[in-house]
Amino acid sequence: MTRLLPFPIVSFCLLALWLLLNQAVTVGHILLGCLLALAGGWLLTVLELPSTRLRRPGVMLRLLGLVAIDIVRSNLAVGRIVFGFGRQEWTSGFVNIPLDMRNPYGLGALACIITSTPGTLWVKFDAQKGSLMIHVLDLVDEGEWIRMIKGRYERHLLEIFE
């Protein structure tokens, strides 16, 4: 398993990409896609990436749902700010958040979640102190953001990655 498929998830994604691009699920395309997937996995071993295991697919689905809800909600919030509905004044600022997550893939996933949610932005992670700096567009209460990032995202990611 590890020799043949060093990165099973990447290989699966490559196969799915090939089939979607060709819009055909025929034997020939599946064979070609498998070849691409195997070659891609082998090429990645050159980079000597740390290996990890994803656990708890149920938690993953719940996290995806949470992120989707948050993206929609913060799209509305940022749109309101851009148009100046409601309050005319808002303050933006940086928030420091102490994180327990150390897994690089988990941190990457957290970065993607935070940045792709409009209104929050991943700025810098200090690996020594384990503190993350994010930028928040509509900053009302720092503690609320810390609770939100830690409780809503980091807790689930810790379950998935560690």
Partner: peptide, 14 residues
């Protein structure tokens, strides 16, 4: 600038 970076994520997500 840091406020403006939030703006294009609307287009790239929803």
């Amino acid at each position: 600038f840091y406020e403006r970076v939030h703006a294009p994520t609307l287009g790239t997500t929803l």
